[in-house]
Amino acid sequence: MSQLNLDLKPKMDLAARTAAENEPKKKRRRKKILMGDLIFTIVNTLLLSLMVVVTLYPILNTLAVSFNDGLDALRGGIYLIPRTFSLKNYKTVLQMNNLLIGARNSVLRTAIAAILHLGLTALLAYVLSVKEFVFKKPVSLFYVMTMYVNAGLIPTFLLFKSLNLTNSFLVYIIPGMIAAFNLLVLRTYMSSLPSSLRESAQIDGANHLTIFWKIYCPICKPVFATIALFIAVWHWSSWFDNMIYNRSNSELTTLQYELMKLLSSVSSQTSSGSAYGNTTQSVAITPTSIRAAATIVTSMPIVILYPFLQRYFVTGLTIGGVKE
């Protein structure tokens, strides 16, 4: 004990002394941290501002060019504000027949796919969320496998050909109905609901389809919105199926594919100012400005919608990130 006291005494003295000495040091250190935090905040703000600028500038620039007179835009130097305001580009774009057909098909396929694919995926997800379902595991595995094992382009192409899906609108709708990722998100969400929901309905004599429709669908609205958004974005953006399966039929064209043709036909020319379309018109419409206008028209629907759906897709992705 005495030894301990001996040991402690000088230490405590030392501690008392250093505490007194440390007072200014501590202040300095706190000051240092504050300085560091300030620098951190400034750097952080700068970096994030840079990120916002880099993200927004190209889009705003395209917007500005699309509202600018075509020939004038060729001189360059348009950044965020159109120099010579003109609506000609939009008029031309909206008069392009193919683009209108494409828009119709894109809207149709997006709407049908979002509703149909969501409904079917949700139904399967409901079945797989019933805990006592005997085939729950094998059926889940059956679909999860499709995430990893992919037959590839050629066999799929030949299958669609033999099913007469090529050269038809159905090729936009029928394949890819059940995406494993979406299925997992929905299943995870439904499994997290209390099973007493289902059971009490079963006591009342409801069958599974009724329970799915009357109870689960209303509850799952938020996650449904998420999945519908995922599906819709995918369908709105896709052009590959159009190019591979429906290339020859201009009645089945989609907006993105038309845009692609427009962009690639234009980019292969040098932008020397060759007028696009009607050359007799005195006001020239250039490829660059047409391209800008078409880009804006094509991206508008989803760009206007997504901020309102933000809450939903954040939830959905978070659920999807959970380990299966």
């Binding site: 994030l48 990120m51 916002v52 993200t55 927004l56 190209p58 889009i59 620039n61 395209t62 974005v233 709105w236 953006s237 896709s238 052009w239 993105q256 845009l259 692609m260 962009l263 980019s267 660059t288 391209r291 880009t295 094509t298 991206s299 989803i302 760009v303 997504y306 901020p307 933000q310 897709f313």
Partner: peptide, 24 residues
């Protein structure tokens, strides 16, 4: 605001993005 802006490009198709990249 930063968050919302950062999601924006995800909603543009590759066709549009490559067009923008080429322009830039």
């Amino acid at each position: 605001f930063v968050q919302t802006v950062s999601y924006l490009p995800h909603f543009l198709s590759w066709i549009i993005v490559t067009g923008i990249v080429r322009d830039m």
